[in-house]
Simulated assay, not measured.
Amino acid sequence: MTRSYLPGIFAMAAVVVASNILVQFLFGQWLTWGAFTYPIAFLVTDVINRVYGAGPARRVVLVGFVVGVICSLIGTQIMGEFGPLVTLRIAIGSGLAFLIAQRTDIAIFSALRSGAWWRAPLASTLVGSSLDTAIFFTIAFSGALTWIEPANDVSWAGEILPILGAGPEAPLWVSLAVADWMVKLSLALIALIPFRVIVQRLSARPA
């Protein structure tokens, strides 16, 4: 049975690796290129859940988590302009956000499985993506959690600015989180198209 969803495992691993690389490159003022690849992880999880079930989906997520941990360990050893590319707070935030958000996605998808084809992937991805953004940015950059890694100076993320340059004032990391969240929500809608196509093709394959 594992061989059936092996492509899903490879896809999840590829998404996690690509996102960990692309997050180092800025896209505009509020985003990185990784913001556009990471949400594909939810598409992979939902396709596996729909075609093979929640159990296989959880195993694919576990693989993604392990790959993410490995990427974080490698990142802590690579020195950038301001220190290691991956700090302890980023590593913890990334790992917890991925695991909690993906597991929540699977639970919601499974609960809505019997409804309209689009309801489960859309609802699960919207909730999972929102959790992912909230958990990661809060742990990685919130001034209230500096005790996690006192030596890591994230004061730059606490600079008070209008949200996305136009809204009410808040710490810079809130703008980064909002921009990331908006990309995830947009891609959740777009991903319904490949979700439908991929599921139909996989379901049509002979057992």
Rank of each mutant, 00 (worst) to 15 (best):
R89K: 09
Q77L: 15
F98G: 11
E81N: 15
R103P: 01
R89V: 02
M79C: 02
E81V: 13
P84M: 08
A107R: 04
S110A: 11
R103A: 07
R103D: 07
Q102K: 10
F109E: 08
I106E: 06
A107S: 07
R89L: 00
S110T: 08
R89Q: 05
G83S: 12
G83R: 15
A111R: 14
T76D: 05
I92N: 04
S94N: 08
R89D: 00
F98Q: 08
V86E: 04
T104E: 06
R89C: 00
M79W: 14
R103Y: 14
G75D: 05
I74V: 15
A107Q: 05
T76R: 10
G93S: 10
I92H: 12
I108K: 03
G75L: 01
I90P: 02
I92T: 06
S94C: 06
I106K: 07
L85R: 01
F109K: 03
I108H: 01
S110Y: 02
F98W: 15
I100P: 06
G83L: 14
F109I: 00
G83N: 13
R103W: 12
S110V: 02
A107M: 07
A111P: 09
E81C: 07
L99Q: 10
G83A: 11
I106L: 07
I90D: 04
L99Y: 05
L96S: 06
P84H: 10
I106S: 03
F82N: 15
F98D: 00
M79E: 09
F82K: 13
G83K: 13
F82M: 12
L88Q: 11
M79L: 14
F109D: 03
G75V: 05
Q102P: 07
F98N: 10
T104F: 14
L99D: 09
T104N: 12
